[in-house]
């Protein structure tokens, strides 16, 4: 009876010897890919900017906490067909110019995002999900889904809290300096959204999104609203 067990164990060991390095190779490949294709515009290591000048110089979102922020399936999909999320770029101040009716976005100054192949997008998404800095700010499972009507959500987002000033709630409606929110529920993890809205500067000390001191009980309602928006067919 001993022989077969030993034999199976040996086989498992042999298989591990083959598969484990493959796993490491994948992780290594993912990091190599991030360093080669992403590090030019994204900070993969942190910490976040501590001066406004560093905010101006930032070309893309910090990725050293990507695993706490993004939804993996969205990352893998978006990296293959990237579209603009921030209408005025990463730091809006670098992409505006005076116009006849006030400041306007200088579209010519906005560069398209790098597009990855399917396999590279999967590799990058996996490597990004391993980046989990600032985990202490996340309370896993904190968000419990609720229901909110679109009109009540809009009332809260616009009239009561003034968030519409900087964020679009549908294409072409809302502010331009912040990222669009009508896709945010598809892009970001719910627990991250709650944590970020609770205190944006805990994640990014100099970011130009103010801490609105939202009530704790309202935080999940904003996420509920974002989910309602994400189900709309705006295209």
């Amino acid at each position: 009876m001993k022989r077969p067990v030993v034999s199976v164990m040996r086989r498992i060991s042999m298989l591990s010897l083959i598969l484990l390095p493959l796993g490491f190779a994948n992780a290594g490949q993912g990091d190599d890919l991030l360093n080669a294709r992403c590090a030019g515009c994204h900070d993969l290591k942190g910490p976040a900017p501590t001066t406004v000048q560093a905010i101006w110089e930032r070309k893309g979102p910090d990725l050293f906490y990507a695993g706490n922020k993004y939804r993996r399936e969205w990352l893998a999909r978006w990296l293959q067909a990237p579209v603009r999320i921030r209408p005025a770029g990463m730091f809006y101040g670098n992409h505006i110019k005076p116009g006849p009716d006030g400041d306007e976005i200088d579209q010519g100054s906005l560069a398209p995002h790098v597009k990855l192949s399917g396999s590279d997008a999967e590799l990058a998404a996996s490597a990004l999900m391993d980046k989990k800095a600032k985990s202490d700010l996340i309370k896993p499972g904190e968000y419990h889904s609720g229901t909110i009507s679109k009109s009540m959500g809009e009332l809260m987002f616009d009239k009561f809290r003034g968030c519409l000033a900087c964020h679009e709630i549908e294409p072409g409606y809302g502010g331009s300096s912040g990222p669009e929110v009508y896709t945010v529920a598809k892009r970001l993890q719910s627990d991250f959204l709650i944590s970020y809205m609770r205190n944006p500067q805990a994640w990014d000390p100099k970011i130009f999104m103010p801490n609105k001191h939202l009530k704790e009980q309202d935080l999940p309602k904003f996420v509920d609203y974002f989910k309602v928006l994400s189900e709309e067919d705006f295209k």
């Binding site: 809006y92 005076p98 009716d101 006030g102 400041d103 009239k159 519409l164 000033a165 900087c166």
Partner: peptide, 24 residues
């Protein structure tokens, strides 16, 4: 001012920043 205020108050401070279009 450039970092935090331009977005609404504008590059010259005239109140015409890029965010004003849909403001009430």
């Amino acid at each position: 001012y450039k970092t935090y205020c331009w977005q609404c108050h504008g590059m010259t401070g005239n109140g015409n920043g890029i965010n004003v279009r849909d403001m009430s």
